[in-house]
Design a binder for these strands. Structure first.
Length: 723
RNA sequence: CGCAGAGUGGAGCAGUGGUCAGCUCGGGAGUCUCAUAAUCUCCAGAUCGUCGGUUCGAAUCCGAUCUCUGCUACCA
């Protein structure tokens, strides 16, 4: 069985950060490395996604050629991956001619079918100064709903209403500031709606045309849930072309390019082709063969493209296999907040590589910290404290320490050579404790076998965190066993005690199992670990070989095998004799503190300056139209179905009225009762959340969104005019 | 609003009908000395968001409800 793996193509418009690594690359790397160790045929492709409007806009803004941007970030990201041991088989780029050809062929194939596209002419805003059509996001204007002046073409951020650009009052291009004009344009729409039925079936049952392609139980719950949510909402034809000059030309349609999300996944195919061209394989075997399994590694924001759009494209094209799984991860936060480049929150990959260049095992330290904290089922949070803890407790205390104990003891008692097992040795019993928890020496082999097997099974099922836990437990098991057997005590009593040899023999086997199974997780350290055991680096098929060896009851390290020199594999971060490693991390903490400080300072300043501009002049008569009066709040209760509204009754002296006010987030009902306020009484009554509101309470709001009542002194009286 | 995911000892997580609800960190006590002030053992601590239901039996299934996150941004 072949395994074709893909990881989301990074967008070549900026550097990658830890969240990306944890989402689509580290899990895939562990999976790929494991499969290779199992002797399976694996091809893992990725590459830079180099098209799209964001790149052209940025190029325009900076007055450079888009090429400069993509060349920079392609090289940067590729280099970061390499430094961290991300073992792609091929890292391509979508600006390559091969990819352009592949995408155009794909497009033409669907076009030839005749029923896959719908060609529609619509009116869109065009920027006459920048000479281009404008994406919704690049148009600003006044919201027709709330009169907010900086609403985007697709949504008003003030009132949250979804908009279309043509609804905006006074639209302005954010690129040039020009007033955009409507122009006709023609676009190709992919008939996703035609694919809805089989997609639904496929996601729900794993079957297409009655053939079972995968078991939906193997897919993550949130992936299936997200897909069903989309499918139940109904699929619409989606435009797959754009009016741009940067991207893949639509054949015979000058000025049109394929929309990025159409060409990007095809990038997986062209990456495979390029690999095949350079390595003498047949790319079609991987994409179309019956014995090939396709797996997409992505983050959750990409679920819809990889589970719905791309499969629909593949099926529409014909011949291609559908993915057997899409183990999408959720998001990783950084110290409690989202990664944000603009705020400087988080750490980029090349930044990590640079800042941690003096940190021993820096690549594996970060791989391990992310692995232990992978957002597999829900969002997770990366913290430097966690990084430190996982490194010191797992790698240094449990794993490194065990290997060290074993090598030191073996050198001490047996000149560094693995002793032969003694066979008939009394079971462990150190006298203390119940005695029952001590296991017989002979049980060690089966424990090790089981652990190696289970770690593999977890990886195969994309349960990487579980695999890591089992791995740590194996190291812990080694420590416990060694502790219980206590060869140092036996040696004191009788240096010839056969139990010493028996124990060290088994410990060597545990160490060898650890040295093998850690390879997918921490490949750099794995090699050093194996060097300590005097083993060469693991090669393809070694994991399977180990399973066979263990199953046959044979040792992973034979008696007489000579171990290498003992040494400290993982110097601890929290080390009272050497603060250098902790200092590197402390620098990161300081950086965060600086970001936070800058942020709160910026907030204070912007608060001072962010007062609304004064409104246009009006006449005194206009002002007199408003009927402002004092009043007292008599009753208050929360409005059901709403988190922001309170339903109030106010006393206007001559009458009482019902008022709905959006202050629930700031005031509890009981604290506003009895409050003296000023209100506008002659606004047209309006129903909010089903409750009639016959007046409006005046509130003052500061830059931080804090609300206070505009009140006359208590006891002033109700219904008196305010001018 | 709707949809999706999540709510489990101080913290972070496992756990989809049935042995005392597990693990790691943290806290407390102890053991050992081969080892990186590491290891190992024991103890304290949760009525598994809330309410109701199904069942002989539920953290686990069903319904309702509350809260958080995402679906929109330079995001995987």
């Amino acid at each position: 069985m072949k395994s074709l793996l893909t990881s989301a193509l990074p967008y070549a418009n900026g550097p990658l950060h830890l969240g990306h690594l944890a989402g689509a690359y580290l899990p895939a790397d562990i999976y790929a490395r494991y499969l290779r160790l199992m002797g399976r045929e694996v091809l893992w492709v990725c590459g830079s996604d180099e098209h799209g409007a964001a790149i052209t806009l940025r190029a325009k803004k900076e007055g450079i050629d888009p090429r400069e941007i993509i060349d920079k970030y392609h090289a940067l990201n590729k280099g970061s991956f390499e430094s961290l041991g991300i073992s792609f088989d091929y890292y391509h780029r979508t600006s390559e001619p091969l990819h352009h050809e592949t995408s155009q062929e794909f497009f033409l194939k669907l076009l030839k079918r005749g029923d896959q596209f719908e060609i529609k002419t619509t009116e869109q805003y065009y920027d006459p100064e920048a000479n281009q059509f404008l994406a919704d996001r690049y148009i600003k204007g006044t919201c027709p709903n709330c009169s907010f002046e900086n609403a985007f073409g697709d949504q008003c951020e003030n009132c949250g209403k979804d908009l279309s650009p043509t609804e905006l009052i006074n639209p302005v291009s954010t690129i040039s500031g020009a007033k955009p004009e409507l122009r006709e344009t023609k676009h190709w729409f992919f008939r996703l709606d035609e694919h809805e039925a089989w997609l639904k079936d496929w996601i729900k049952t794993g079957k297409v045309d009655g053939v079972q392609l995968h078991d939906p139980k193997d897919w993550k719950k949130h992936v299936v849930g997200q897909c069903m949510s989309w499918l139940d909402g109904g699929l619409m034809p989606r435009s797959i072309t754009r009016d741009l000059d940067w991207g893949i030309q639509v054949p015979d349609a000058p000025g049109k390019v394929l929309y990025v999300w159409f060409d990007a996944p095809i990038g997986y195919i062209s990456s495979t082709k390029q690999w095949a061209a350079e390595n003498g394989g047949n790319w079609e075997d991987w994409w179309k063969g019956d014995d090939s399994e396709l797996v997409h590694f992505i983050g959750k924001d990409n679920i819809v493209f990889h589970c719905i759009v791309f499969p629909a494209m593949l099926k529409a094209h014909g011949e291609y296999n559908l993915p057997v799984n899409v183990p999408a991860n959720q998001f990783l936060n950084f110290e409690g907040d989202k990664f944000s480049k603009s705020r400087g929150w988080g750490i980029e990959l090349q930044e990590y590589v640079e800042e941690f260049k003096d940190f021993p095992n820096s690549e594996d330290a970060i791989r391990w910290a992310l692995l232990r904290n992978l957002p597999e089922q829900q969002d997770a949070d990366f913290t430097w404290d966690g990084f430190t803890e996982y490194h010191d407790k797992d790698l240094a205390d449990k794993l490194g320490n065990f290997i060290n104990r074993v090598t030191v003891l073996t050198h001490k008692y047996f000149g560094g050579r693995v002793p032969a097992p003694q066979g008939r040795v009394a079971p462990l019993s150190s006298g203390e404790g119940s005695g029952e928890r001590f296991l017989a020496h002979a049980q060690v082999q089966s424990e090790v076998t089981e652990a190696v097997y289970k770690i593999g099974k977890d990886i195969e099922a994309f349960r990487f965190k579980d695999a890591a836990t089992t791995f740590v437990e194996l190291a812990s098991f080694g420590n416990t066993y060694l502790q219980d057997a206590a060869p140092w005590s036996l040696f004191k009593a009788n240096p010839e005690d056969p139990a010493i040899a028996e124990t060290m023999y088994h410990c060597a086997q545990i160490a060898a199992a650890l040295a093998l199974t850690c390879t997918p997780f921490i490949p750099f350290s794995a090699n050093r670990l194996r060097a300590v055991l005097n083993q060469s680096p693991a090669t393809n098929g070694d994991w399977q070989l180990a399973l066979d060896t263990l199953a046959a009851g044979h040792p992973l390290l034979s008696p007489e095998h000579e171990l290498g020199e003992a040494g400290v594999l993982f110097p601890k971060i929290i080390d009272r004799k050497d603060d250098s490693r902790n200092a590197i991390i402390q620098k990161q903490r300081d950086k965060m503190a600086a970001v936070l400080a800058a942020k709160s300072e910026a907030e204070t300043t912007s608060e001072k300056e962010a007062r609304d501009p004064f409104k246009p002049e009006m006449t005194f008569d206009d002002f007199l139209k408003m009927d402002l009066r004092t009043a007292t709040i008599l009753t208050a209760e929360a409005v059901k179905k709403s988190s922001k509204l309170l339903h109030l009754t106010i006393d206007l002296g001559s009458e009482q009225r019902s008022v709905v006010s959006g202050i629930a987030k700031h005031f509890a009902p009981e604290e506003v009762v009895g409050k003296q306020v000023v209100c506008v009484t002659n606004l047209a009554p309006r129903k909010m959340a089903g409750v009639l509101s016959e007046a409006m309470i005046l509130m003052a709001e500061d830059g931080a969104g804090k609300l206070v009542f505009v009140s006359p002194p208590d006891g002033f009286g109700d219904g008196w005019g305010v001018r």
